[in-house]
Deep mutational scan, measured.
Amino acid sequence: SYYEILDVPRSASADDIKKAYRRKALQWHPDKNPDNKEFAEKKFKEVAEAYEVLSDKHKREIYDR
């Protein structure tokens, strides 16, 4: 789930989600993982997609249904 990707509970606040996104984006940024760039790019995209949905109140409500 998007919550698992960002490592936050379903009850996470918008601020918690933003902090988790920043932490995970740094962790999986391809430039930070030169030895495993392809895998890092995949993870980085997953993190971005999760944040896009969970950071938008309307999209998150739909996702949580």
Rank of each mutant, 00 (worst) to 15 (best):
residue 57 K to L: 10
residue 21 Y to I: 02
residue 21 Y to A: 07
residue 25 A to R: 14
residue 43 K to T: 06
residue 57 K to W: 10
residue 13 S to Q: 05
residue 3 Y to K: 00
residue 53 V to C: 10
residue 29 H to F: 06
residue 42 K to R: 13
residue 42 K to Q: 13
residue 47 V to C: 10
residue 14 A to W: 07
residue 39 F to A: 15
residue 49 E to C: 08
residue 34 P to I: 11
residue 23 R to F: 10
residue 45 K to N: 10
residue 44 F to V: 04
residue 16 D to V: 08
residue 39 F to E: 13
residue 7 D to C: 13
residue 23 R to Q: 14
residue 43 K to G: 03
residue 16 D to W: 06
residue 39 F to C: 09
residue 18 K to F: 14
residue 13 S to A: 06
residue 28 W to A: 03
residue 25 A to T: 12
residue 15 D to E: 14
residue 52 E to V: 06
residue 15 D to M: 13
residue 60 R to F: 03
residue 61 E to Q: 09
residue 3 Y to V: 00
residue 11 S to Y: 13
residue 26 L to P: 02
residue 35 D to L: 13
residue 59 K to S: 08
residue 42 K to L: 13
residue 39 F to G: 06
residue 54 L to H: 00
residue 19 K to F: 08
residue 49 E to Q: 09
residue 13 S to P: 05
residue 30 P to H: 05
residue 33 N to G: 04
residue 63 Y to K: 03
residue 13 S to M: 05
residue 19 K to E: 15
residue 28 W to R: 01
residue 21 Y to T: 02
residue 62 I to T: 08
residue 19 K to R: 14
residue 39 F to W: 14
residue 33 N to W: 15
residue 35 D to W: 11
residue 21 Y to F: 13
residue 55 S to F: 07
residue 61 E to R: 07
residue 10 R to H: 11
residue 61 E to D: 12
residue 54 L to W: 01
residue 45 K to I: 08
residue 22 R to P: 02
residue 64 D to E: 04
residue 51 Y to W: 09
residue 55 S to L: 05
residue 25 A to H: 10
residue 1 S to P: 05
residue 9 P to E: 08
residue 11 S to T: 15
residue 50 A to S: 04
residue 21 Y to G: 03
residue 9 P to T: 07
residue 44 F to A: 08
residue 2 Y to S: 02
residue 43 K to A: 07
residue 3 Y to E: 01
residue 23 R to K: 15
residue 39 F to Q: 09
residue 15 D to A: 13
residue 2 Y to M: 06
residue 50 A to N: 01
residue 47 V to R: 01
residue 65 R to T: 10
residue 14 A to S: 13
residue 47 V to F: 05
residue 35 D to A: 13
residue 44 F to S: 10
residue 25 A to W: 15
residue 44 F to R: 07
residue 64 D to T: 02
residue 15 D to V: 08
residue 15 D to N: 10
residue 8 V to G: 01
residue 56 D to W: 02
residue 43 K to C: 09
residue 32 K to S: 15
residue 11 S to P: 03
residue 14 A to N: 11
residue 46 E to S: 06
residue 5 I to E: 03
residue 62 I to N: 10
residue 27 Q to R: 09
residue 62 I to C: 12
residue 35 D to G: 12
residue 5 I to Y: 05
residue 6 L to T: 00
residue 9 P to V: 07
residue 55 S to H: 07
residue 25 A to K: 11
residue 12 A to N: 01
residue 65 R to N: 14
residue 41 E to W: 12
residue 65 R to M: 14
residue 36 N to D: 09
residue 64 D to N: 04
residue 14 A to F: 15
residue 47 V to W: 02
residue 52 E to Y: 14
residue 61 E to M: 11
residue 27 Q to G: 04
residue 62 I to F: 08
residue 48 A to H: 13
residue 7 D to H: 07
residue 41 E to M: 14
residue 3 Y to F: 03
residue 28 W to S: 03
residue 5 I to M: 06
residue 31 D to N: 09
residue 53 V to P: 00
residue 32 K to A: 15
residue 63 Y to P: 02
residue 5 I to S: 04
residue 7 D to I: 02
residue 43 K to Y: 08
residue 49 E to K: 11
residue 55 S to V: 08
residue 31 D to F: 05
residue 51 Y to P: 01
residue 21 Y to M: 05
residue 29 H to R: 09
residue 34 P to S: 11
residue 49 E to L: 11
residue 29 H to K: 07
residue 13 S to C: 06
residue 17 I to G: 00
residue 36 N to K: 08
residue 15 D to L: 11
residue 49 E to N: 07
residue 22 R to N: 15
